[in-house]
Design a protein around this nucleic acid. Sequence first.
DNA 1: GTTGGCACTCAAAGGGATAGAGTGCTAATC
DNA 2: GATTAGCACTCTATCCCTTTGAGTGCCAAC
Lengths: 350, 350
Amino acid sequence: MQLDNRKKEVLHAIVDDYVSTNEPVGSKSLIERYNFNVSSATLRNDMAELEHMGLIEKPHTSAGRIPSDKGYREYVNSLMTIDELSPREQLEIEKRIDSSVDEVTDLIKNATHTLSETTGFVSLAMSPRLKKSFLKQLKILMIEPGKALVVMVLSAGVVKDKVVRIPNFLSDEQIMKISGAIEKSLTGKPLDEITLVTVETAGKSTDVPEPLLKQVLYEAYAAIKQADELNIYLEGEHRMLSLPDFSSLGRARDLLGTLSDSGMVAGYVNEMENAAREQGTDDSFMIRIGQEITLEGLDDCSFITATYNLTDSVSGNIGVIGPKRMLYSKVISQIDFVKKKLNQEMKRFT
Amino acid sequence: MQLDNRKKEVLHAIVDDYVSTNEPVGSKSLIERYNFNVSSATLRNDMAELEHMGLIEKPHTSAGRIPSDKGYREYVNSLMTIDELSPREQLEIEKRIDSSVDEVTDLIKNATHTLSETTGFVSLAMSPRLKKSFLKQLKILMIEPGKALVVMVLSAGVVKDKVVRIPNFLSDEQIMKISGAIEKSLTGKPLDEITLVTVETAGKSTDVPEPLLKQVLYEAYAAIKQADELNIYLEGEHRMLSLPDFSSLGRARDLLGTLSDSGMVAGYVNEMENAAREQGTDDSFMIRIGQEITLEGLDDCSFITATYNLTDSVSGNIGVIGPKRMLYSKVISQIDFVKKKLNQEMKRFT
DNA sequence: GTTGGCACTCAAAGGGATAGAGTGCTAATC
DNA sequence: GATTAGCACTCTATCCCTTTGAGTGCCAAC
């Protein structure tokens, strides 16, 4: 069955109305509030069909209709139009994005914060996926006997470091030799092509005794691997408590419980990203609605992310988790605008 | 008016009973559940007096009594006894404390996590107060023209770094000279004695041209100052939603809203710490109950922190925010035990 | 100082009754 | 065939009333 024009309008109106009032929408109020040149009985017929198609549903027999996940999906895919933010709204966001920070991480956190304040929902960002970036510098600094700091500068303008344990007897000079050898042979290599073997090979040119050397190389390798681990920044969880959608304590608890496990959320975003990439969806937004989200407790949420780019090959995600019942077009423009600003600011770092 | 023995027992019993049942406590149930060798009428008289003294109160005329903030305070100060954790509970905590981490920060986060899981409440820790620790190393690494990384190793075994902007024209060699000069003259100085003037004096011995030098020195100074900024780690906010004490969405919202501003909470903990230090209270725990806490939305909470020590002169706080209606003695032993483990583990870093 | 007794209070729980917004269906109309 | 008016029906939310029961304060007696 195809949606004729009026049915599309009806679905559109139902979503709009429900989003703004949080009340199930009846045929009568639809007539009152929107300009349909037909009677409520006609709309009732249309609504019965929309329900039959699974696009809307009734909380109970004698209530109005609310959009189903499928209904929101149809709305998002085919019905809504996305407007640009007003200059005023743009300004509001620009004011919040702090262009004075010196580290990419701070910039991302700042953008996440801005997004949460702007949308009033939970915002999140993934750290850039650094697998494709390459090593520009690697230094090992002796901190004290037995302890050293591995500092890495990556092509994407990101600096990472990690404290590692090293054999007690190594001299400052030996460490420098090893560090120099690794740097010399790995500079320019993408992180995902660096393996324990490549690091060990790089170290061979030094005259440091084998067992000592091996431990340092292993630690350096571990530090490099840690550098491309993904972080997630989540913000504004408490805002969900102000939404009528989560006025039931049980739902709110489940939701915040899930969000508190940031590793799990990060894993999920990663999965989404990979799935999208495989499908070659070159849509710039990933949108998951309600039950489409496989995280527990997010049945009443929608999950919208966009991709920011630090360099051509290094990117990450930024987005929002809000109630299904949200102003999709508005939220999408907000994310889009923040993303654009973020991309702009990121040019400073690369 | 002084509390005679029986009144003490009555207050003790009321607190215990209310904590475990979350129901206002009546004279009759008190008789039933505890071995008072008097009648309920006698207890009613005692309770009337306790109420007169402000130690307990009635939610409404015909209800039982609940402890007031003052009542909890009396309980905490004079009535309760603190038992050691059972070997089983100790083991549970020991299992969770990860002794393989290589950085103090990770250890603290880990302890915070453990504390939240153990108590079921919100846990928090402050990063160590590094003002009294001194500089052991300071290196400036050139990242690329115009950008450098300041790496500092502090006496407390903590490593800090910050990306800073530097003049584009500075050579690697010049940077090393400056870095060496600063390190040479500031090593061994406590952070709180390092000022912009001391840093500038340190830099004078180099032959780097004045204006360039000045910017680098300023950035180095800023990096050092940033190193002793306090961080706070908060965890388990969502757990509050499972407590009957916060079953009203409004309270839960206010609470989580306040906790989401971690800077504010950090400021408050700091204030508490300073106040305690001024008073010379050498009590190892700081306990604030209900309205004693000046943060908004925490009227129904108690705030308990202990002090951990990284070195003799470098310490921080770790503790819990839970409902007023908590098992104080248990929670205090839990915090105490985690703190002790933390102190033990910290020895590895110094 | 302690106790039994008693009148009183108040929140919480239960049980209709009512209102109102909404529905589906049918038969008439365009 | 699509649209509409009309109508019987449904179900929740709300209000109000009563009942219940745990608890209180106070008084007179022990």
